[in-house]
Design a protein around this nucleic acid. Sequence first.
DNA 1: GTCAATCCGATACGATCACATCGAGAAACT
DNA 2: AGTTTCTCGATGTGATCGTATCGGATTGAC
Lengths: 203, 203
Amino acid sequence: MGRRARGPGAQHEHRCREIADAVLEIVAERGLPAVSLSEVAARAGVSAGRVQHYFPSKKELIEAAFDRGNDLSSARINAKIGQDPQAASPRAVLAVVLTELIPYDPTTRVHMRVRQSFTARALADEAIAARLRQDYARLHQTLALLIRRDQDAGRIPATADPDDTAAGLVALAEGLAYYVLIDVSSADTARDLVLSALAEVYG
Amino acid sequence: MGRRARGPGAQHEHRCREIADAVLEIVAERGLPAVSLSEVAARAGVSAGRVQHYFPSKKELIEAAFDRGNDLSSARINAKIGQDPQAASPRAVLAVVLTELIPYDPTTRVHMRVRQSFTARALADEAIAARLRQDYARLHQTLALLIRRDQDAGRIPATADPDDTAAGLVALAEGLAYYVLIDVSSADTARDLVLSALAEVYG
DNA sequence: GTCAATCCGATACGATCACATCGAGAAACT
DNA sequence: AGTTTCTCGATGTGATCGTATCGGATTGAC
């Protein structure tokens, strides 16, 4: 009953991640509608039964993949920032986070394609929308805190609202990220625009 | 042969639009994956056979709905600008276009939900992507022209690149538009951010 | 070594889908 | 009036989907 599965725990999580990663690969290549149990099983190189065992419903499978995608993106960005977020200057951290939202290589392209797919589904899937809102709240809050720190240090005019400024910067980065994904803009152009927007925040 | 169907032409286009509008309604409510021939027929109040007659394949149906959605949005924005685009000041036109990209009432919410759905599909559907690229090219070009006009008039610093600036403003507006759609930001906040970004362009 | 929980492959089922086919009726041109 | 084209509802078909279920294999606890 209340007992926790202990022995196979490690294997369990590993298998779950394998399957979730297969979902992400399919989403990156052909979008969320292309995700089916048989597709996922084939991509992960396992039987459909196993997929069904770990994720009894498709809904759970999709949501697990969403969380997995978020974890991968967060890990990538955190690795870029370095182990000590307090050490670097707020502006440097802001620049890294914002530019990391722009796809500039195959890996980041995959990450942003996946994210874009889930943002679309959020419009019709409240479970995904709730997860996404929480995700945005955390991201915006983090950036707003950095802005506020540099406001206190006098490097950013105190007139700007930190929360709105943070939301604006992320919105710009994501809008440009989409342009890069569909080849409307180049990654370099997008990066320059984001960084110049950041520069304007700094007066 | 080369002959054009004349008599039933009017009815033909009218029926096509009815069906395309039904597709847009479904997309706005439950997303593109919810669009099926039977759903569309039921929503439009016609038989499935008629839908199939006017749109022999689902692909054509989706693409027609995409074009229809674009037409509706363009018409709405053009109506806001007024009949004489040369008369108004470039800045006023820029402000209208950018704020009209932000959902602020049920109608604009529907328009932007539909647009967001198609942008997601564009990642996996080259036909939609091509249409979207053309759409963006036109929009960005229009705004860049307005910016250039006010650069020539000395109202905007000549240092800024008109095309990149236009792309940045639209990207910001669309990123914020999505925040409004999933209730991350309010429409007022988004509007203010877009307008202040425009103000910064004007120095 | 025994036992129970977990794991997972195989199969079946009902629903839904896009699409094809057919044929009757309406309309338009000759 | 006759003929042809357009219109479109009805029905069938093959494929794919998500899910339920079952039975044996594996595993870890004791």
